[in-house]
Design a protein around this nucleic acid. Structure first.
Length: 434
RNA sequence: UCCCUGGUAGCUCAAUGGUAGAGCACCCGGCUGUUAACCGGGUUGUUGUAGGUUCGAGCCCUACCCGGGGAGCCA
């Protein structure tokens, strides 16, 4: 007797007519007396296995009838094309082996639950269809990000997680004990990325980022993933082009390779297919006029609030690049516009449909004296930036970079309401378990 | 930190100040093509906590605890 091959559900189309074993967990079941329909989940998909009583012993058939949700089992049978089944295939089961019987009180039933309850059971919620689709898309976004930069000669150089002080000073940091001193979890790898760019030309870092802000909204996590490319000799116009090429590439990878998941999420794929260059570009001043025209009370000089960003992004069906904000509302390391010193050579990318800022970037200040003045003006400890200023002492060049939030981007692509579903185990204000 | 909103069965939610309920889950039985299967029967409660008002409080009042959403800030 030859061994029956193990097949993953996503590969069943290659095994039509063959006998295979699928290995997984019981997702749901329906029963008609002498016939069971077992929905088996194996991590790559869900397949319906049809079990006729005649093919099974009395005892096993009875056992399958009472098997609780999420019990682990393997099922052996022949693969049939079945157009009505999700995934297009079903298994005509010949035999089954129960690997472990789950407790009968699996908390996540096929009925509706609130997100608070589901988040408390996040470790189990991950098994559900929509969460599965979201996290598969996240993984594809992550790969697309790496591919985009790797294919263009960027060197991946990850920045440290432990940092000695604030990069920007304004945001709250998580302190951690670091032997005899206090260190902080990174809130941005950018300053290190600048050093890397001066060494390697085109670089990026991609890792977790920590913000101790007491933000409690559907756009915020205290721990999120950010990719931060940094390029020597790149100026603002080039940065805008890089952003639109990059973001289009990422979105189109998902459209191409994760269409089934987008359908599960009931995402309007047509909206994503439109995400190709060029993106609309709007100066801050134009954006202010747009807000005023729409009846928002807004004065030149302030930063946009979330409702302002939503209004701006809703005017377009692509991500919009808003550039040249007032320097006063932006970080100290941004270069001023020689044409108008009131504004910085920076850009925010606002995702469509009200998903908010997914990218923030700028051309960096490359003049030593200007940076020293800015650090003093922002009351930042000059000593902590000594190494950073060395980058301007030894061969300073124009350079630019940006940061993109992985979970916000994933949330926009998936059309999920909240970023917390776009990471396996979200860390939020006063939420650290599971 | 501030504003809004909520807390009733394992889950999702009902319940004019007057006997605490339904659907699902779970248990028992039925059904050879089910699609959140269906049909019949059954189990399930310190109504977030502590006080107060009242003949009587899930409901009204006060404080606190916890959740959700938003503002500021940011990706």
């Amino acid at each position: 007797m030859t061994a029956v091959p193990h097949a993953y559900v996503e590969d069943l189309h290659r095994h039509v007519g063959q006998v295979v074993t699928v290995k997984g967990w019981l997702y749901n079941k329906r029963s008609s007396g002498k016939l069971h329909f077992l929905q088996l989940r194996d991590g790559t998909g869900v397949v319906q296995c049809v079990c006729f009583k005649g093919n099974f012993g009395e005892e096993l058939f009875k056992q399958l009838d009472t098997l609780p949700q999420e019990s682990a089992l393997t099922i052996t049978g022949s693969v049939k094309a079945e157009p009505r089944a999700p995934g297009g295939h079903e298994i005509d089961a010949q035999t089954a082996a129960i690997v472990s019987v789950a407790q009968a009180d699996y908390p996540i039933t096929p009925k509706e639950h609130g997100t608070g309850f589901l988040m408390e059971h996040r470790h189990l919620w991950l098994r559900s269809r929509k969460q599965h689709a979201i996290l598969r898309i996240r993984a594809r976004v992550q790969k697309a990000i790496r591919d985009f930069f790797d294919d263009r000669g960027f060197i991946c150089m990850d920045a440290p997680i432990f940092t000695p002080s604030a990069c920007e000073g304004t945001t709250t940091l998580f302190p951690v004990e670091y032997f005899d001193e206090t260190a902080f979890l990174t809130q941005s790898g950018q300053l290190y990325a600048e050093a890397n760019a001066m060494a390697f030309g085109k670089t990026y870092c991609f890792g977790p980022t920590f913000r101790a802000e007491k933000s409690k909204t559907r756009r915020h996590l205290t721990e999120f993933w950010m990719v931060e490319p940094e390029v020597a000799y790149l100026e603002l116009d080039g940065l805008l082009e890089l952003i639109e090429q990059f973001l289009s590439y990422v979105v189109q990878c998902v459209v191409k390779d994760r269409r089934a998941e987008l359908v599960v999420l009931e995402r309007d794929v047509a909206k994503l297919e439109k995400i190709v260059p060029p993106f609309p570009r709007l100066s801050y001043s134009d954006a202010v006029d747009l807000l005023k025209g729409a009846g928002h009370a807004f004065e030149w000089g302030g930063d946009f609030g979330a409702p302002d960003e939503t209004l701006i992004s809703e005017k377009f069906d692509k991500p919009v690049l808003v550039h040249r904000y007032p320097a006063a509302v932006k970080a100290f390391y941004m270069k001023r516009d020689p044409q108008d010193p009131r504004v910085a050579l920076c850009v925010d990318c606002l995702a469509p449909e009200g998903y908010g800022e997914i990218i923030g970037g700028s051309q960096r200040a490359d003049d030593l004296a200007f940076l020293e003045e800015q650090i003093a003006h922002h009351k930042l400890p000059m000593e902590a930036f000594k190494w950073y200023l060395d980058l301007r002492r030894y061969g300073s060049v124009p350079h630019s970079g940006f940061g993109l939030g992985l979970e916000r981007t994933t949330a926009w692509i998936c059309g999920t309401h909240h970023v917390r579903e776009c990471i396996a185990f979200p860390r939020m204000l006063e939420k650290i378990t599971p």
